[in-house]
Amino acid sequence: MTEYKLVVVGAGGVGKSALTIQLIQNHFVDEYDPTIEDSYRKQVVIDGETCLLDILDTAGQEEYSAMRDQYMRTGEGFLCVFAINNTKSFEDIHHYREQIKRVKDSEDVPMVLVGNKCDLPSRTVDTKQAQDLARSYGIPFIETSAKTRQGVDDAFYTLVREIRKHKEKMSKDGKKKKKKSKTKCVIM
């Protein structure tokens, strides 16, 4: 069974824990209790493949930012979460993405942009803004509501699919490099 290491990042209060708990335990946590770091595991079937999701729910508070490099190193894919009623959390996505790329030393890291709290009427981040940002990053965008469960499975499952595509691409690139290195030079 394939294991996928997913990391949920975003500013404090955007609903990272609520999304994760909704996926794992099928219930909505409405009281806000700032996370330092929590880890969850769940076995699911995605596109006919049974897999184990190892999900790291991270601290959004700035005082825990020193811990970010460590979990970013171990993560295979990242859910970059903002709240649709919090423009600052949307603007912060850029910083999370840049930090992930720096730590992973790669421009090509599996990510999904997630606009959470889409059940709320007080939207300050337009869907088109988020779609445009995701398009500019070359990553999928999904709106979710941890409260109603809308888009929750889709967000995590899409990230797994992005990781699969990335692994497939990397193995193809690896095979191309191996083929090239088999060419021999004969000096007579």
Rank of each mutant, 00 (worst) to 15 (best):
K147G: 15
K128N: 12
G174S: 13
V125E: 01
S145D: 15
F156D: 00
H166C: 06
H166Y: 11
Y137S: 05
K180C: 15
Y157K: 14
S136D: 14
K180S: 12
V186E: 15
K172A: 13
I187G: 15
Q131K: 12
D132H: 04
A130N: 03
Y157D: 11
K176I: 03
A134Y: 03
D132K: 08
A155H: 01
K184V: 00
K169A: 12
S145F: 07
R164A: 11
E143V: 03
D154I: 05
K167C: 02
D154S: 09
M170Y: 13
C185R: 15
Y157T: 13
G151F: 07
R161L: 01
T144L: 06
A155T: 04
M170C: 12
T144M: 08
A130K: 02
T158V: 04
R135Y: 11
V152A: 08
T127Y: 12
F156L: 10
A155F: 01
G174F: 00
D154G: 06
T144I: 15
S181P: 04
E168I: 10
K176Y: 08
S181A: 10
F156P: 00
D154Q: 12
K178D: 14
V152P: 05
L133K: 03
A155D: 00
V125Q: 00
L159G: 00
A134D: 02
M188C: 14
F141T: 02
F141R: 00
E162Q: 12
K167Q: 08
D173G: 11
G174Y: 00
V186R: 03
V125W: 01
Y157S: 14
E162P: 00
V125L: 01
K172T: 09
R149Y: 14
M170G: 09
L133A: 05
K182V: 05
Q131W: 04
A155E: 00
Q131T: 07
H166T: 09
Y137L: 15
L133D: 04
I142S: 01
L133Y: 10
V160G: 02
V160I: 13
D173A: 05
E162G: 04
K169D: 10
L159R: 00
M188A: 15
I142H: 02
V186N: 15
V125D: 01
R149T: 15
Q131L: 08
D126N: 09
K176D: 15
K184R: 07
R135H: 11
I142W: 02
I187A: 15
S136C: 09
D132R: 04
T183M: 08
L159H: 00
Y137V: 09
V152I: 13
Y157C: 14
K169F: 10
K178E: 14
T144V: 12
A146Y: 00
R149W: 03
F156C: 03
K178R: 06
E162T: 03
R149C: 14
V152N: 10
K177W: 09
S136G: 09
S136F: 09
K165T: 12
S136L: 09
C185V: 02
M170A: 08
K175C: 09
H166D: 07
S181L: 04
K128L: 09
K165F: 02
L133V: 07
K178Q: 14
A134T: 02
V186T: 14
Y137Q: 05
P140V: 01
I142Q: 03
R135P: 02
I187Q: 15
A155L: 11
R164G: 10
G138L: 01
L159F: 00
K172F: 10
Q129G: 11
V186A: 15
V186L: 11
K128Y: 07
E162N: 07
D132N: 09
T158F: 05
V152M: 13
V152C: 10
Q131G: 07
D126W: 04
A134Q: 02
M188E: 15
V186H: 13
K169I: 11
D154E: 14
I139Q: 01
D132F: 03
D132V: 04
G151N: 13
I139W: 03
T183V: 03
F156R: 00
A155V: 12
F141W: 01
K176H: 14
G138S: 02
M188Q: 15
K175T: 07
A130Y: 15
A146I: 00
K165S: 06
T158S: 10
L133F: 09
E168L: 13
K169M: 10
D153I: 14
I187L: 14
K167P: 01
S181C: 08
K172D: 13
V186D: 15
S181F: 02
A155S: 03
D153M: 14
K178S: 11
K178T: 11
K167S: 05
S181R: 05
T158M: 14
R149E: 03
K167G: 04
I142L: 07
Q131P: 03
Y157G: 13
Y157M: 13
K182I: 04
K180F: 10
G151V: 11
V160A: 03
K128I: 11
D173T: 08
S145K: 10
V160P: 00
F156H: 01
H166R: 08
D126Q: 06
K180A: 10
D126A: 06
K128D: 12
V152L: 14
L159I: 11
D126F: 06
A155N: 00
S181V: 05
T127R: 07
D153C: 12
K128C: 10
T127C: 12
